[in-house]
Simulated assay, not measured.
Amino acid sequence: MNLQLHQAAAADDAAAIVTLLSGGAEIDARDASGATALLVATHGNCVNAARALIEVGADVNAKDGISDSPYLYAGARGHLDILELTLAHGADLASTNRYGGTALIPASERGHVETVDTLIRAGVDIDHVNRLGWTALLEAVILGNGGPRHIRIVELLIEAGANVDLADNEGVTPLRHARDRGFGEIVALLEKAGAN
């Protein structure tokens, strides 16, 4: 399989990408893992390569063997420049990763404040529940560290209208999780929002 396009993407070499594509390289060809060149560029946060590929029509929703797409991966990893490019070029806001979660859920868990804000403004479902039974709000509390970034994410989710009482599969609410972890500022935000 010809993987020159993938190699150029990994090297963030936009000029090589343009040359390869004009020479007939298949824009959405897959490597052994099922990744397109655009997903390879996204893995490395190679913005120049990603832009070159997206601007000539690379599929921002093409998933690899583990259900990552350039859009989902950029969101999960906080690769904001690439995320914004995917959003401007047809990102499927309802697409889900291997855990059944939208891009907003791992972005919230990992403390990517600007990414969370960007995804909320793009219109991602705030209260989507993944296969673990968790929403973005639950992941920000359960898997977050209670620090400033996760406090801000909880604030953004509440401001965007997140259901503060949507419990996990065991019936435990975000407020109870926050109390159990001693996250006082998050507890205060949830209580102010009327959480039970």
Rank of each mutant, 00 (worst) to 15 (best):
P106E: 01
L143F: 12
G123V: 03
N45R: 05
G100Q: 00
G75A: 10
D81P: 11
V129F: 03
I142K: 10
N97D: 12
S22P: 08
D28V: 06
P70L: 07
A162I: 12
R30Y: 14
A140W: 02
T102S: 13
I82S: 00
E109M: 12
L80S: 06
T118R: 00
G146L: 15
E84H: 03
V141I: 15
R149G: 04
H43V: 12
S69C: 07
A32T: 07
L5S: 00
A16M: 11
H43P: 12
G144I: 01
D68I: 02
G171R: 10
V60S: 09
A103N: 11
A107C: 09
T102C: 10
I105D: 02
V172W: 15
K63Y: 08
A10E: 03
D12P: 10
T102Y: 06
A49R: 07
V141C: 06
G23W: 05
E139V: 07
Y71Q: 02
L157H: 08
A10Y: 03
P148D: 10
G171S: 01
R110N: 08
L157G: 07
A25H: 03
L83Q: 00
N169G: 12
M1G: 13
N2Q: 12
L53P: 02
I54Y: 06
D180I: 15
I27D: 03
G144C: 08
G75T: 07
L138I: 01
A37P: 06
H177M: 12
E55G: 09
